[in-house]
Nucleic acid binder design. Structure first.
Length: 434
DNA sequence: TCTGGGGTCCTAGGACCC
DNA sequence: TCTGGGGTCCTAGGACCC
């Protein structure tokens, strides 16, 4: 086995239980208390504080399945992605000041370039300190010669930081091919539940076990993706930082409905409107779209229907998309059926300016300018201020005290009972200091 | 009562062409 | 009549990520 020993080239800095930390940032009463953030419609737990984990709660558990005795001990919040996204952007700007290159990997994780730095650990600790002081989010740092090792280091920093906090040590870990025997293989980036099961049958338990398998057999049995992961565990880089976010290939908006509905048209139209806004925000146009609807498997009705349609010319016009969505949805609905979930996808996305008009098809420039005006108004006064002949708007559901627009057609809307205010993104909800 | 949402990449197999 | 290799494109399904 070839092992390459290198100084760290990459760092991975991520926020500890990020959504919970964001909620705590604005509501210090939550500190030290078991805290849970719930996903859409207050359904499943999507983030847990360590205290909540200690009570036995798991990511993905529906909150209603949690026994009352435990639920009473837990502070519950509805996910507030506007708030989390805003704090995330502040963290990124701190990192850009300290590192020559930053890859925004997810809302709570950033890779940084530490190649050639004299003391990468010190710089990473400085970053951690600034983020804690200026944004209020605690972070852990992993270092490694490859991105996979940096991820591994981050995991190990997390598991060690509990003990380290007591011992006064700090939440940084430099992972090398020699010290990753401490990391269970399921915690390796790129190894999910399926691979973990199959690897266990081969006696592979740790990251080091995976690294020591013959590469050819990993390649043959698991494919190129895991073979690359294995190379990276040995310190051989298979990828660099991605500094530019690549253009999306598709944009999907889907939701579980608040209850089973017979007529999901209003929901699908709303999803499509949101998808179009997102698409225009990225200067893209859709060459095709699809729509799907699911029954309720928990009621023994687990069907799935979907239909797709290409568009004659890539469009960024909400009206045109809605027309297609209505047509497809109506062709899929049956009088006796109830739907639990639905979604729409805009696909075959191209950059708006790369569309080429031909003799028969060209964008309607007047309508397209109208779309841009609409987006500007909605950005300024809130989503749904103006729209293309539809009803209710906030996809996540009404905030407490806010009227539920859309009337009886809006039964699909999930309710949010415990949404924290949009402290940083709405003037009316700014935190007040007495 | 109530069960997350949004992405990417790879592979295998079928259809089709030369 | 019988039988070929190689290329492309598309789709569905499987695996992963946060």
């Amino acid at each position: 086995m070839s092992i390459v020993q290198e100084p760290p080239r990459f760092g991975l800095i991520d926020g500890n239980t990020f959504y919970v930390s964001c909620e705590r940032m604005f509501d210090p009463r939550l500190h030290g208390k078991p805290t849970v953030v719930l996903g859409n419609g207050d359904g499943c737990c999507i983030a847990l504080s360590p205290e909540a984990k200690a009570l036995g709660l798991k990511i993905g558990t529906p909150i209603f399945q949690v026994p009352d005795a435990i639920r009473k001990q837990v502070q519950v919040r509805s996910a507030n992605f506007a708030l989390y996204g805003d704090l995330s952007a502040r963290i990124v700007s701190i990192l850009r000041d300290l590192f020559p290159r930053v890859e925004v990997y997810s809302i709570d994780e950033n890779f940084v370039d530490v190649e050639g730095m004299k003391d990468p650990v010190a710089i990473c600790l400085e970053a951690r300190e600034r983020i804690l002081q200026w944004v209020g989010i605690p972070c852990c740092v992993g270092l490694g010669a490859t991105r996979t090792l940096a991820k591994a280091g981050n995991k190990l920093a997390k598991t060690q930081s509990k003990r380290a906090a007591k011992a006064g040590r700090l939440a940084v870990f430099h992972a090398t091919p020699e010290n990753i025997h401490q990391l269970p293989v399921e915690d390796v980036w790129g190894v999910g539940r399926r691979y973990t099961e199959r690897l266990a049958q081969e006696g592979v338990q740790t990251a080091a076990d995976l690294a020591s398998l013959p590469t050819d057999s990993v390649r043959a049995r698991y494919g190129v993706v895991l073979a690359r992961t294995q190379q990276e565990l040995r310190g051989i880089p298979c990828g660099d930082l991605e500094l530019e976010e690549p253009d999306r290939k598709q944009i999907v908006v889907s939701r579980m409905f608040g209850r089973d509905v017979a007529d999901p048209l209003d929901a699908l139209v709303t999803f499509a409107t949101v998808a179009c806004e997102k698409m225009r925000g990225r200067d893209l146009a859709a060459g095709a779209l699809w729509v799907w609807l699911d029954g309720n498997p928990h009621k023994g009705d687990g069907f799935h229907v979907s239909r797709a349609v290409p568009l004659p010319f890539p469009t960024r016009d909400t009206g045109e998309v809605l027309q297609a969505v209505r047509f497809l949805a109506k062709s899929m609905m049956r009088p006796d059926q109830r739907f639990k979930r639905g979604g729409i996808g805009l696909t075959d996305l191209v950059r708006s300016e790369q569309r080429h008009a031909d003799m028969f098809f060209a964008p309607d420039s007047r309508r397209e300018r109208g779309m841009d005006v609409m987006d500007k108004i909605n950005a300024k006064y809130g989503r749904g201020t103006v729209g293309v002949g539809t009803t209710g708007w906030r996809v996540g559901g009404a905030r407490p005290g806010e009227p539920r627009r859309g009337g009886k057609d809006a039964q699909w809307r999930p309710r949010l009972k415990a949404l924290s205010p949009a402290y940083t993104t709405r003037w009316s909800e700014l935190l007040r200091v007495q």
